[in-house]
């Protein structure tokens, strides 16, 4: 039973088609890395999977439930891409993490013992237990990112979406992030992570999905950071059927200079 089942999805932003013909099926317990260059559509794809971007065509099902009827938000944890977790009013790390518990709380009920335990555990996993009372704005960028992960963790979800959690985060903090995600993976959580570069997360990844220009060009074995942008990735799914484009791709593969229509024609030998 797939946890995520996206079929022939298309998404448009302001009328411009961004994602086209995207199929993505993720099984329970998988750790999937969505990779690709800036503007390739990887963030749009993860935002589509969380419902923040509506599909213009195609279908999405989470936990075997069509998205329109999906309400079990406590099964989903989302870590949005944020430069800072702070807002206009001070908030303590504990308060921000506690807001992740709302998926499981009823209206007008105070926090129960189970809620408090889950919040404490989430802080423990990301290594911020000793910073719970501090202001979120006083933490370093990497620690704020970890607090956002703890917020998603506090709801005890089975499926995690993380949008570029390692962007602008230094190496020790990336390692701390990787350790936290390792704990989740060991617990059997399904994780979909958008990343520009994997860094210390690389050993955790089961499967790489590479986006280019709004399409999936690779879906399979984990790729190393440098491979993602290699020209041969996605050759099989090349949407262009012009023979000249094929030839050009072959030239790139063999390290020959890329030719453009304005180049002087090569003299045949």
């Amino acid at each position: 039973m797939p946890v995520i089942d996206l079929r022939d999805a298309a998404v448009a932003l302001g009328g411009r088609p961004v994602l086209r013909h995207v199929d993505l099926r993720v099984e329970s317990g998988e750790f999937v890395a969505l990779m690709g260059a800036n503007g390739s559509g990887k963030s749009t794809l993860v935002r589509t999977l969380t419902g923040l971007r509506p599909l213009t065509s195609g279908s999405l099902a989470l936990f075997d439930t069509p998205f329109e009827r999906f309400h079990a938000w406590s099964r989903v944890g989302y870590v949005p891409q944020r430069a800072s977790a702070a807002s206009g009013v001070p908030a303590s790390v504990w308060e921000v993490v506690a807001s992740g518990r709302l998926t499981r709380r009823r209206l007008l009920r105070p926090l129960g013992r189970a809620d408090r335990a889950a919040i404490a555990r989430a802080l423990e996993v990301v290594g911020l237990a000793d910073k719970a009372r501090e202001g979120i704005g006083d933490l370093s960028g990497g620690q704020q990112q970890r607090a956002l992960i703890a917020r998603a963790l506090a709801g005890e979800p089975e499926l995690f979406f993380l949008d570029e959690p390692t962007a602008g985060v230094d190496l020790p903090n990336q390692q701390a992030l990787a350790d936290a995600l390792g704990v989740l993976k060991a617990d059997g959580a399904t994780i979909v992570l958008v990343a520009h570069e994997l860094g210390p997360l690389a050993p955790l990844v089961d499967r790489s999905v590479v986006m280019r220009d709004g399409r999936v060009v690779h879906d399979g074995r984990p790729l190393a950071d440098h491979e993602v942008h290699a020209p041969w990735v996605g050759d099989a799914g090349d949407p262009h059927c012009h023979p000249s484009a094929r030839r050009q791709a072959r030239r790139e593969r063999h390290g020959l200079p890329v030719r453009s229509p304005l180049d002087r024609p090569e003299r045949s030998r």
Binding site: T50, G51, L52, H71, W73, S74, V76, Y78, P80, R82, A85, S87, A91, E95, V96, S99, G100, L102, T103, L148, R151, G155, F161
Partner: peptide
């Protein structure tokens, strides 16, 4: 608090 702190997170939390 949750909605004012982070709208997108709140939306995915089902609020």
């Amino acid at each position: 608090f949750a909605v004012s702190q982070d709208v997108e997170f709140a939306r995915v939390a089902g609020l």
